[in-house]
Computed example of a mutant assay.
Amino acid sequence: MTIERATRTDSKTLTELTMRSKSHWDYSMQQIEKWRDDLTISKDYITEKEVYKLIDSENKIIGYYSYFLINEVKVKLENLFVEPKFIGCGYGKMLMNDFIERIRKTRTEKIILDSDPNAENFYKKIGFKVIGKLETSIKNRFLPIMELKIKPVASKDYK
């Protein structure tokens, strides 16, 4: 398994993976279609954000994460998705570890994210805390807003 920067040519593959992964949580296809724009990983998105893909030994993308810097000390994890057949196999944790180690090399002190309610416990196990909630388009459904405080690696050579 390797984790490397996604390229613009990965756009369609990452979008399809996102749709399959989101569908894993028993959302209706009608609901997934309503979210299509939000779940689409465009070529421009890959250029503008930090997007890293997990590739298996057959050179297939089986997961990815994306993030962006909010400011010098805060980053937002925007996406973390794994192929449904690999959910629960440790690949999500592998992606999170890579992400955290990558941003620890910057001045980042806080990671924030808006979690799908089905993924909340995954993030809690890593150490994220719920700091708020975000109302969604589905009645009585809220996304937990979560935060993880980290200590940057001591270095004068921040990236």
Rank of each mutant, 00 (worst) to 15 (best):
L17V: 07
M19E: 12
R20S: 11
R20Y: 10
S21L: 03
S21F: 02
K22F: 15
K22V: 15
K22Y: 14
S23R: 14
H24F: 14
H24A: 00
H24N: 08
H24T: 02
W25R: 07
D26R: 15
M29I: 11
I32L: 14
K34Q: 14
R36Q: 13
R36I: 09
R36A: 12
D37Q: 14
D37M: 12
D38V: 10
D38K: 12
L39T: 09
T40R: 03
I41N: 00
I41D: 01
S42R: 06
S42Q: 07
K43G: 11
K43W: 01
D44N: 13
Y45S: 11
K49A: 08
K49V: 05
K49G: 00
K49N: 12
E50D: 10
E50H: 14
E50Q: 12
V51D: 03
V51E: 05
Y52P: 04
Y52I: 14
Y52V: 13
K53P: 04
K53M: 04
K53V: 09
I55S: 02
S57D: 10
S57K: 15
E58F: 10
E58Y: 10
E58G: 01
N59V: 07
N59K: 13
N59M: 08
K60H: 12
I61W: 01
I62Q: 06
G63K: 06
Y67A: 09
F68S: 11
F68H: 10
L69E: 11
I70S: 08
I70H: 04
N71Y: 03
N71H: 09
E72A: 15
V73K: 10
V73F: 10
K74C: 13
K74W: 04
L77G: 01
L77F: 00
L80A: 08
F81S: 04
V82F: 00
V82P: 00
K85D: 14
G88M: 05
G88T: 07
G90N: 06
G90C: 04
Y91Q: 08
Y91A: 05
G92K: 06
G92H: 06
K93S: 12
K93F: 10
M94Y: 10
M94F: 12
L95T: 06
L95S: 02
M96R: 04
D98T: 00
F99E: 00
R102M: 08
I103P: 01
R104S: 09
R104H: 04
T106F: 09
T106A: 04
T108D: 01
T108G: 02
T108A: 13
E109M: 14
E109T: 13
K110T: 15
I111G: 00
I112M: 10
I112H: 01
L113M: 09
L113I: 00
L113Q: 05
D116T: 15
P117I: 08
N118D: 15
N118P: 11
A119R: 03
E120T: 08
E120W: 02
N121Y: 15
F122E: 00
F122M: 03
Y123K: 09
Y123C: 06
K124R: 15
K125A: 09
G127M: 05
F128L: 11
V130Q: 13
V130T: 14
V130I: 13
V130L: 09
K133R: 15
K133N: 12
L134S: 15
T136D: 03
R141N: 07
F142S: 04
L143E: 12
L143H: 11
L143G: 06
P144F: 05
P144T: 11
I145N: 04
M146I: 01
E147S: 07
L148N: 02
